[in-house]
Design a protein around this nucleic acid. Structure first.
Lengths: 242, 242
DNA sequence: CGGAAATTTGAAATCGCTCAATGATAGTGG
DNA sequence: CCACTATCATTGAGCGATTTCAAATTTCCG
């Protein structure tokens, strides 16, 4: 009956059943969108956040001169649009990368969660810090590394997150991003992403076949990415006993 | 007696005197460091966060192949090292850009703030979302724009933040970053930062003289940066009346 | 099957990097 | 107060990674 994926904050605390109920109740209506459609657009008034039930979504920032950066690729279980709650108008567009279903959570309900389930609030705080670390790593990858490393970092990142969602997920998965979208995520050009893919192919550390990608040599790919390893805490001791 | 700058979360709520007291009490010991010294290093065990009392600090991520990205330039009033609370080992090094004084806040005390002053907790949540937006904008700047635009974006960003701290601060200020450090922040090379500065000089939108920089044509600089305008909310209505 | 979208290829241009050297500035100790 | 040193800023030349533009091919989808 409840087909919802595990919420991201399960990574940090194990929510009680009341807390889970509070989360469920917060959602107002459910959206369904096709690939390429916008859940909401940069500049829109901020009235809600979204819980991604199924499908992939990109958070995009568009510059004044019409260039688009994908700042985050969201997988099921993610909260979408949270950064913009501190703004009057949305910082990012939320664009469906696949067919998507998402639940809208009005800001008022979202804020109430913090009062009604403070532990959950703190878990969300931790989860946000995790997002910050991932953004920092992404900046580092884009700012300081070459195209093959950037692509490697993105692939490894997605791989690791898929694994977190589904333990059975292996080194082979569907990658529903076009090369144009991969370019927007890595700060490159579609053309150059294409050539870089071929380079990784040639090095035999990845394989591509009809929309699927296989990370043939995951550790080589990880080395190439050159990002520091990140080990996230679960139920940190300093959180206190209660 | 209390020379501490306004805490960043003042941007979102006006804390009560009890809340301010709780904040003050959370701090354990005060550190003083010289330029170039590390408050704490990437990979260190995470035991505390820091409140920056005076001076500038850079949050840096180092790649496995020895390159450094400055992911954030901190000004007085900032909390330092918060992203790493979700990790066992620090994601970033905190490097003093000037002579610095900072208060260490043990994680246990930091967590207690959320229980004792929940409104403050929510303000910190909002403040973190603001950080996320700024990281997203930085990624966009680095991933999708040219060197002059990146430098413009950084300068405008710092200008705006200085203004927030001190209303009297104008378009002219000390910039205590070397060109090497500016390069690490913008994803460029020191050499190229130098040439880009000369270009901005020639365009007469900035002026440089002994460590000071003047944003001669702020709006031109803003246009050049090409980042979307961000208007942060104060005391959002959806936060509820109490 | 037809048309649109996505991938791939090639060639040329450009932006930013590397390397190496020179100047400028500031701090240090004699 | 000056010589000495280290750090930082600046310059030049050549190179290389990535972009741009344009076209060809393949894949996807209705």
């Amino acid at each position: 009956m409840d087909d919802a994926p595990l919420h991201r904050l399960h990574e940090f605390v194990r929510p009680s059943s009341e807390e889970l109920a509070a989360l469920r109740n917060a959602a107002a209506d459910r959206l369904t969108l096709d690939r390429k459609q916008a859940i909401r657009r940069q500049g829109d008034r901020v009235n809600e956040v979204f819980f991604l039930v199924s499908g992939w979504v990109a958070s995009c920032v568009d510059t004044a001169n019409g260039r688009r950066q994908i700042v985050k690729v969201h997988l099921p279980g993610d909260l979408l649009g949270v950064p913009s709650i501190c703004l009057e108008r949305a910082a990012e567009s939320l664009i469906a990368l696949t067919r998507v279903t998402a639940d809208a959570i009005p800001l008022r309900s979202f804020a109430r969660l913090f009062e009604e389930a403070p532990r959950l609030g703190f878990a969300m705080f931790l989860s946000t810090q995790q997002e910050r670390v991932m953004l920092m790593d992404r900046i580092t990858s884009i700012g300081r590394t070459t195209a093959p490393r950037r692509l490697a970092a993105l692939l490894v990142h997605i791989h690791d997150r898929l694994k977190l969602i589904d333990e059975r997920s292996g080194e082979s998965f569907e990658l529903p991003l076009t090369q144009e979208e991969l370019a927007q995520a890595t700060g490159l050009t579609a053309v150059h992403v294409n050539r870089t893919f071929q380079e990784l192919d040639r090095m035999e550390i990845i394989e591509r076949r009809d929309g699927r990608i296989t990370l043939t040599d995951l550790s080589a790919l990880r080395d190439l990415a050159a990002l520091p390893p990140r080990k996230f805490v679960r139920e940190p001791t300093w959180l206190g006993s209660d």
